[in-house]
Design a protein around this nucleic acid. Structure first.
Lengths: 341, 341
DNA sequence: TTGTAAGCGTTATCAC
DNA sequence: GTGATAACGCTTACAA
């Protein structure tokens, strides 16, 4: 590759001038500008990013910590990554895919300290997320897909409006005529990590149920489909006798559908099912087609990356208005008025 | 972060010695070794990757060109990326996610020339892949998930054994008693890019059908589910009157399942369906559960990354034996003996 | 408006 | 075995 020195020589200017033409941090006279630019083109010059990074202290690389522990089902999460990667690209950054099996981040911090990473995007954020604190302490900028309970402080997030989504879901069920509904959430594991989404969705559901006067029963299930299948029996045997369920984890919804088919329970006639998080691609495979109110993952990933990068670039004002995503209610074939009015 | 200079001072050695302790490219005496290592630990030293990259000419970063054009269904492809990213990580490399909407790679080449990328992994490889030639011409190492028709030359690939997979699939159908089967492949678009997988799968199917004495009819469908649904009508109205189909693209299989359910066609009684490429997570949602013989995507991504990195590290002998992946035949609920023997 | 030169933190090539 | 000392290609004061 051509170096800056060669461009400078060809254009008959100093090396610094070449840099300033590129960065625009200095006023350059018309003729010089032209000469430099044409020299760059002639030599097919590209500034060396490693040299830029070394001299400038910024790599323009960010990492997405991608959770791979729950390999259960439907990697909804890919869409987040795609959105973030595309946004990064558009802004001249690069997104490294960082698969994580646990929540340890010492290696991430080390890599950032080694100058390779300017910032990090986190998923599956907990209310009190040790990773966020650790990264903050290490002065590494963090973007979140999700958010902690530290509302004001960490402003670099893209999160769902769980209250709004829960409200929309429950309202829909109420309008269909349901009186007793279930909420399927993830089993909170042995660890004391409380994923923020679970808490906010739960709170949203409770509030919405109260608002619309529905009786709400909570069920717990792990992410895999088999757990969802077992769950259906719990649901129908429950004294709560719900006529519909709203499920937070995709595995549960599918498991319920599967098992219902096997035991001859008719969906949505005998039980309505609404998923609060299932990717489009995944829904297309379900039979009957799952009704959903899912997060716009691509968009959210895009937003998280943009916010983080804007921060890295030193923008004071957040360019993007701080919004939460509701997700669109997609009525398909698993929701209807209750049978046993 | 602590720099090498600080470590050298603390350990009372020259900076070069610190580097050589790290790289092991020089014999270091016991006491010096100890002093340097302890100084490194005390200062929590990490070599600056940008400086290493600049001085060494290698960034230890590779990119995965991730196709996002066919947003139809089931991102099988995430698993490839996860495998590749994990392998890279394990080997001290980093994998940047590079979403691509088309097959242009000038920007990739420019980025590699800018020193950020040491190599590139390609997906959806064509028989004659212009991207491979362009990258080769630019002296950028390429790893493939898939492979071109240039068998010997580009040795850095991880591909399926399409002949073997087709053989296994057809053999299975033959043993079930099917005489006339269909092969569903992707519609070859307007462009003249011939994705290698399509060709090899086709050839494999033809050979296998001949071998087991089955009559084979080819059907074409685009990737989306709706196309798959329309396809079912083509299949049942076809004079070939097949009793089973083997589908290359996941969208088609699902569409067929969907439409069969709607029009009251019983699967597998009236028609057996076997998918040659559907991710686990996706299959769990189908009803009835799709029988498959899918590629081990994670493993293949892992392999492609390892091969590429081994090459980047200058290994002459390919460490990993050059194998092709068959994929495991998973008999689930969409395949059975034909009804109309 | 432009040029000069001091870093940035390594690798690699000499010497000793 | 170990220590200097040029690169590596850029950013960015500081001069002019």
């Amino acid at each position: 590759m051509a170096t800056r020195a060669e461009v400078a020589k060809l254009a008959g200017v100093s090396e610094a001038t070449v840099s300033y033409v590129l960065s625009g941090k200095r006023k350059i006279s018309e003729p010089v500008q032209r000469r430099v630019v044409s020299a760059m083109q002639k030599l097919n010059y590209r500034p060396n990013r490693m040299a830029q990074a070394l001299a400038g202290g910024k790599s323009r690389v960010i990492a997405l910590l991608f959770p791979t522990a729950a390999k259960g089902i439907a990697n909804v999460d890919l869409e987040y990554g795609l959105g973030a990667a595309a946004a990064a690209q558009e802004l001249g950054y690069h997104l490294v895919m960082w698969p994580t099996f646990d929540r340890s981040i010492s290696e991430v911090i080390a890599t950032a300290n080694a100058g390779l990473l300017d910032g990090v995007i986190l998923m599956e954020v907990a209310m009190q997320d040790e990773r966020v604190s650790a990264l903050s302490k290490a002065k590494i900028p963090v973007g979140l897909i999700g958010r902690t309970d530290n509302e004001g402080r960490d402003s670099l997030f893209a999160d769902r409006d769980f209250a709004g989504a829960a409200d929309a879901a429950v309202k829909y069920f109420a309008e269909l005529g349901h009186k007793r509904i279930g909420f399927v959430t993830e089993r909170r594991g042995k660890s004391d990590i409380v994923v923020a989404a679970l808490v906010r969705a739960h709170d949203g559901m409770v509030a919405a149920a109260k608002k619309y006067g529905l009786k709400l029963t909570q069920f717990e299930s792990s992410t895999d489909v088999d757990a969802g299948r077992r769950l259906l029996h719990q649901i129908i045997e429950s004294p709560a006798s719900v006529t519909g369920v709203i499920a937070l984890n995709p595995g549960a919804s599918v498991g319920i559908l599967q098992e219902a088919n096997i035991i001859g329970l008719s969906i949505p006639k005998d039980l309505s099912v609404l998923s609060m998080a299932s990717p489009e691609s995944f829904v297309s495979a379900t039979q009957p087609r799952l009704s959903t109110i899912s997060p716009p993952a691509y968009e959210m990933g895009d937003c998280a990356a943009r916010r983080l990068i804007a921060h890295l670039e030193g923008s004071k004002e957040p360019d993007l208005p701080q919004k939460l995503w509701l997700g669109e209610l997609q009525v398909r074939e698993t929701t209807a008025a209750p049978n046993n009015l």
